[in-house]
Design a protein around this nucleic acid. Structure first.
Ligand SMILES: Nc1ccn([C@H]2C[C@H](O)[C@@H](COP(=O)(O)OP(=O)(O)OP(=O)(O)O)O2)c(=O)n1
Length: 1213
DNA sequence: TATGATATGGAG
DNA sequence: CATCGCTCCATATCATA
């Protein structure tokens, strides 16, 4: 019954939605009717729909009846299933003078939202609206008077939503009378509910809202009863596609929202207070288990529940258990449906499986557990040395944890690869994109079940068997990757062991082998580098995008030939990787990134597929929106609910305006384009890193605030270390706190997991950029205090540093890159440094060691000191490709050079420059004046990267150069100083647009603004920071520690600036000062702007070793890449350094050799030509030694030769 | 309108 | 034993100026 009834409702609703006029459009109300109906386009075709659509039509129809215009002036919007159907409500409202709003776009004025119940998300979304039950409309019409809506509110007060579905309803006539079952079942789209577990369960906001509304456990029995009903109903009628969620949802909601939900619960809860035993907590899980578990299937179910919840969202609960009985019951229905769930996510864990879970909650124990307070619970838990050792209380926790965390490794690898490839691609500056007329070819290459494949390489005996990679076989262990055999059983990456084993009992669990993944990845990238793609962009350790347009288009091939070539290249990649790694990769090809990604999906496993443009429509029409890149569980749900769309084909029928309104401007635009196969993203479009974060949300269990503080400092130390390794400092800190949700169990289903939490963020702005552990630690501790979160409730902490700026002086120790791709890559390509130069990949252990090192600041300074400058020969070394540059290398560079490099890196974001590897700009000659130079250099650091980023690359470069010059030389621009790297450079003129532009840029107010250098601050620059009170942040704390390096600040700097800039700087500083708090003001001169400057400048330090290092690397480096600007800088420096005496033969040879590789290996003739032109210009301007002319000719001929070998035509050098 | 703080979501 | 739920980015939304 219920089912059929509902179903019909849905249909009607669907019809309703239709309308298209913007005005209404539907929203969610709909349902998915979609499945049966079709997209919007379809519904237009539906007669019923047409009729219903327009309010005008309705009005016309009922015009003569002169019904009381009860709803005049009101705009109603219906959300979710409602008892009178959407369509009926539409008619009722319009017939009585109201306006019916089809969909919410945030702009349209809506006075009331009609709904029976709301999902947590919707509660948040509609927090500011009057949400009424459908009965209000019905009753009002019946009464002939507008009844007070407050008697029909869905959410009590502002906050009571928690009650919603469960019986918290007010006695309103209509609704209640209607059948609870129905109504309840209607409750929101089933989807919403399951959404919770899968993806993320409710958001913190939603949870908070619901909580506030909660009554407490009181409303029990009734609600419970109704609840159950709902579940069942839902299960029954929910469309298959959607079903998955509904049942589950219920569960979750129950647990979350209603702490005390079922009757069962209550009793338990009550008892809760009493019992609790210490052991319980810990052991409950295990020890006790046996008894409880023994036979009860129910338990398993319970477990499942927990797991489910936990899975995605993490739901956990100890208490949830209580509800075992309840759960069980509920689950029954759920399970039945569960099959459907598939899509949603993995959550449902049904099988009875692990004892673990069961053990955790033996019924008998339940009571006891509850009693414990969070603190007692933690105390008990931590009383077990073994457990304690696995928590943050263990001093070695971070090292151990990060060495085992797959997600940490993935992120780390990704960051390293990103910077590496960025530098490679950046070289060719904005490679002119292939003219639009050319056919584009993008490849998306990805290993098939990467971890599983690699981990299984040494186990040939397992072929054909289902495999999963995880840390253990415990129920809450996550499966990072599973092979395709396992996937046939429904196992998925990220799924918890318990569920996976239920789905696939004979699943073989293999261990992680991170080093092997790195090795396989290197081989993989080596193969990719050998393809000759114009651009290679790393997506992750096992995935990359290649723009192979340069290898195909413009060669006069027919389309068919081009496609054949694509096939050939794809095949060669697969064969190459297979040969080197023994693992399969699949290749997706398309005219843009989107098509390549979609094609890859079809290609897997172990295959390749080229999705041609003309096949797109057909290919995509039936794809689920969820299958589009960037559309995850939540977005897909929103699309489904608010637009009643499921497939990409339907999505295509939605007007762009509507998409933007409903989904947000950017997201709407993207969806609109994706639905049409349009993707403007270019391979290699990656920006420079903007933040560095350290997060720990596992193993976090505290008893005292002292422990919290200590751990916070450890985290700060880790962040400091990471910043330091990247030569970065930042001014904005942000703390993320995960706090156990009030209604979440003290012991999450996942061992030492965070469970269901509320997350809070708090940011603080420092007066001066820093990377100092103490400062960070202090700031974050105070930020944490503002949350007033008891130590025992903390389940996760994270610190993020943003507004990054390169550290001027300091040099870093060894680089942290863990992947030493360069070497391998070198193999293919010439390049790469040798390993010796690079620091070996750092194992976790290493990290620890490094960590040990003190703060950067000091060390850096020291390192810096003492450098001598390199000599001529060294110059060449500078040609290093940025990419290849490693931090260790940087260390050796003269400070100025380093700064330059770093500054550039940072600056170039927009253009994809590489982050880490600084480009080359090194200049050779360094030397003497260094000291002075250093002082000046700071200015660069002062440039605001963000500002620079926005500028065109060339302009940016120019500005930087200008700055460098200014700093180095006195006021005048040019000058030749030996000192600064960039300084001497005459500056570009050649291609880039130049000075005029530059000037403009510089002068421009906006730009200037950012550039402000610090004023002269005296010094006290302690690094510290005060924190600007950001939001609630606390005040500043005087910093203390770090030494200031007073450098940068001085007046000298100002003096050197062009007048206009100077004024700007001063004005800015003044403004800043004003704003700054008194204290802050006094200490740090300027905040933001100032902050840019790195807090400290370092004394010049130098190292000779640097030189050496550089040279060694030199060759290899050349090959790689660097941005054109970088290369130009090197050339310029080279020339400046030996203008009079003439170039060294060796250097010339090196340069020529490099140029040849650019043409042959990089296949970038344009780049080579540009470099030669630059040299020609530099030489021409310089009027130096005649030998330069010879060098120039050698370069020209070298490039010409290589071009000819490649069959390219004459070069117009 | 712009900006900043915060929250959310997606991807491996 | 268990278990190692990270990290970066884009976007949305709200508050504030
Ligand atoms: N939730 C996840 C998703 C992925 N990974 C890791 C393990 C995977 O092997 C690797 C690559 O992720 P992919 O999404 O590429 O998945 P697979 O390579 O395993 O499978 P396939 O690409 O064939 O679908 O990232 C993980 O640890 N946890």
């Amino acid at each position: 019954m219920a089912n059929s009834f509902h179903a019909s409702d849905k249909n009607s609703k669907d019809t309703v939605k239709r309308f298209e006029s913007h005005e209404f459009v539907d929203e969610d109300g709909e349902e998915y009717g979609g499945s049966s109906f079709g997209g919007f386009g379809d519904y237009f075709r539906n007669k019923k729909i047409k009729l219903q659509n327009k309010d005008a039509h309705i009005r016309e129809t009922y015009k003569s009846e002169n019904a009381p215009q009860l709803f005049k002036g009101m705009a109603m919007y219906v959300n979710g299933y409602t008892q009178p159907s959407l369509n009926d409500l539409n008619i009722m409202v319009v017939r009585h003078g109201g306006v019916f709003i089809q969909y919410l776009d945030g702009k349209t004025q809506v006075t009331h939202i009609i709904a029976t119940a709301l999902t947590p998300k919707k509660k948040v979304e509609f927090a500011k609206y009057k949400i009424v039950k459908p009965a209000w409309v019905v009753d009002s019409i019946e009464a002939g008077v507008l009844l007070p809506w407050t008697d029909y509110r869905v959410v009590e007060g502002d906050q009571n939503q928690g009650l919603l579905g469960f019986g918290g309803f007010k006695p309103n006539a209509y609704t209640q009378s209607q059948g609870d079952g129905k109504i309840l079942s209607q409750r929101n789209r089933p989807n919403s509910s399951y959404r919770e577990f899968t993806g993320k369960r409710k958001s913190t906001a939603a949870r908070l809202l619901s909580r506030s509304g909660e009554d407490g456990p009181s409303s029990t029995s009734q609600s419970f009863g109704s609840f159950v009903k709902e579940t069942q109903l839902d299960a029954q009628w929910v469309p298959p596609s959607k079903q998955p969620s509904s049942p589950l949802l219920e569960d979750e909601e129950m647990t979350e929202n209603l702490p005390a939900i079922p009757e069962f619960h209550e009793p338990e809860i009550l008892s809760f207070s009493d019992e609790k035993s210490e052991e319980e907590t810990l052991q409950d899980s295990h020890l006790i288990v046996p008894a409880g578990l023994s036979s009860s299937s129910s338990k398993s179910q319970l477990l499942q529940n927990d797991l489910r919840s936990s899975q995605d969202p993490f739901k956990d609960d100890d208490e949830s258990l209580l509800a075992q009985g309840v759960v069980t019951q509920i689950e029954g229905p759920v399970d039945s449906e569960s099959p459907i769930l598939s899509e949603g996510d993995e959550d449902r864990l049904n099988g009875p499986n692990s004892e673990f879970l069961d053990s955790e909650y033996p019924p008998s124990l339940v009571h006891k557990k509850q009693k414990l307070t969070a603190l007692e619970n933690n105390t008990n838990l931590l009383s077990n040395p073994k457990v304690r050792q696995n928590t943050v209380l263990n001093p070695e926790f971070l090292t151990k944890y990060y060495s085992e965390s797959r997600l940490h490794h993935l992120s780390q690898w990704k960051a390293d690869l990103k910077s590496y490839f960025q530098s490679l691609t950046s070289q060719t500056p904005r490679r002119s994109k292939p003219s639009s007329s050319v056919n584009r070819y993008i490849l998306h290459v990805d290993f098939d079940c990467f971890f599983a494949s690699v981990s299984a390489k040494s186990r040939p005996d397992l072929s054909g068997k289902p495999i999963g990679v995880g840390h253990s076989s415990g129920p809450s262990s996550e499966i990072a990757s599973c092979n395709y055999v396992a996937r046939e059983s429904g196992v998925k990456n990220g799924m918890w062991m318990k569920q996976a084993l239920e789905l696939c009992p004979n699943l073989v669990i293999l261990s992680y082998d991170f080093p092997a993944y790195e090795t396989a990845s290197k081989a993989f990238y080596t193969v990719l580098m050998g393809v000759g793609a114009g651009v290679v962009q790393s997506v992750s350790i096992d995935e990359a995008l290649l723009d192979i347009t340069n290898l195909i288009s413009g060669l006069g091939m027919t389309v068919a030939e081009e496609h054949a070539k694509v096939f050939e290249i794809s095949k060669s990649i697969r064969d190459g990787v297979r040969a080197k790694t023994g693992c399969e990769v699949s290749v997706g090809a398309g005219a843009n990134v989107l098509l390549a990604k979609l094609a890859l999906r079809k290609a897997k496993p172990a295959g390749q597929y080229h999705l041609k443009p003309d096949e797109f429509v057909e290919f995509v029409s039936h794809l689920k929106v969820r299958d589009l890149p960037g559309v995850g569980y939540n977005l897909s749900q929103k699309i489904q609910e608010d637009l009643s769309i499921e497939t990409v084909g339907e999505l295509r029928d939605v007007a762009k305006d509507k998409l933007k309104r409903v989904m947000g401007p950017k997201t709407g635009e993207k969806l609109f384009e994706y639905a049409r196969g349009i993707d403007k993203q270019e391979v290699g479009d990656v920006t420079v890193r903007k933040s560095v974060t350290v997060d720990v949300n596992w193993g976090v269990r505290f008893e005292t605030s002292t422990q919290v503080t200590e751990f916070m400092y450890n985290l700060a130390g880790e962040l400091s270390r990471r910043l330091y390794s990247q030569n970065l400092r930042g001014t904005h800190l942000s703390l993320k706190l995960m706090k156990r949700a009030p209604d979440a169990p003290l012991n999450p289903p996942k061992y030492l997991g965070h469970g269901q939490c509320d997350t809070f963020n708090k940011s603080a702005v420092l007066g001066v950029a820093t990377n100092d552990k103490e400062i960070i630690g202090k700031e974050m501790c105070s930020a944490l205090k503002t949350f007033n979160c008891p130590p025992e409730e903390i389940r996760g902490l994270g610190i993020t540093m943003t507004k990054l700026a390169p550290v001027n002086t300091s040099v870093t120790g060894s680089s942290q890159k863990r992947l030493d791709f360069s070497r391998q890559i070198a193999i293919e390509p010439p390049t790469s440094f040798d390993s010796s130069m690079l620091p070996p990949p750092i194992p976790a252990v290493d990290k620890g060691k490094r960590r040990a090192s003190p703060e950067p600041t000091q060390r850096e300074n020291q390192a810096a000191i003492g450098l001598s400058k390199p000599n001529m020969p060294s110059m060449l070394s500078q040609f290093l490709v940025p990419t290849q540059i490693d931090e260790s290398v940087l260390d050796f560079l003269p400070e100025d050079m380093r700064d330059k490099i770093l500054a550039e890196q940072q600056n170039k974001q927009a253009c994809k420059e590489q982050p880490m590897a600084p480009p080359v700009a090194l200049k050779p000659k360094p030397a003497p004046p260094r000291t002075i130079a250093f002082t000046q250099l700071p200015a660069q650091s002062q440039l605001d990267p963000s500002v620079l980023d926005e500028l065109p690359e060339d302009i940016r470069a120019e500005i930087l150069a200008e700055y460098g010059r200014a700093g180095a030389s006195g006021s005048g621009t040019s000058t030749s100083r030996t000192i600064g790297v960039v300084n001497n450079i005459p500056l570009p003129k050649p291609q880039t647009p130049n000075k005029s532009r530059i000037t403009t840029a510089i002068t421009g107010p906006s730009n200037i603004k950012k550039q402000t250098p610090k004023k002269k601050t005296p010094v006290t620059t302690n690094t510290l920071g005060f924190s600007r009170p950001s939001t609630s942040t606390r005040r500043s704390e005087p910093p203390s520690s770090t030494p200031p390096e007073a450098l940068g600040i001085d007046p000298t700097f100002l003096a050197e600036l062009p007048p206009e800039i100077r004024e700007e700087v001063i004005a800015q500083a003044r403004a800043d000062k004003k704003r700054a708090e008194a204290k802050a003001a006094s200490l740090a001169v300027a905040k933001k702007n100032l902050s840019r400057q790195p807090a400290a400048v370092q004394p010049p330090g130098s190292n000779q070793r640097k030189v050496v290092t550089i040279q060694a690397k030199k060759r290899s480096i050349l090959q790689g890449a660097s941005t054109l600007n970088d290369v130009r800088n090197l050339i310029t420096n080279w020339h400046n350094s030996a203008r009079i005496e003439g170039p060294h033969v060796e250097d010339v040879e090196d340069v020529v050799g490099w140029l040849r590789t650019v043409v042959t290996d990089e296949r970038d003739l344009e780049k080579a030509v540009n470099v030669v032109k630059w040299l020609e210009w530099v030489v021409g301007e310089g009027q130096g030694h005649l030998e330069w002319g010879v060098a120039l000719e050698m370069c020209k001929s070298g490039v010409r030769e290589e071009a000819q070998k490649r069959g390219l035509r004459g070069i117009d050098v």
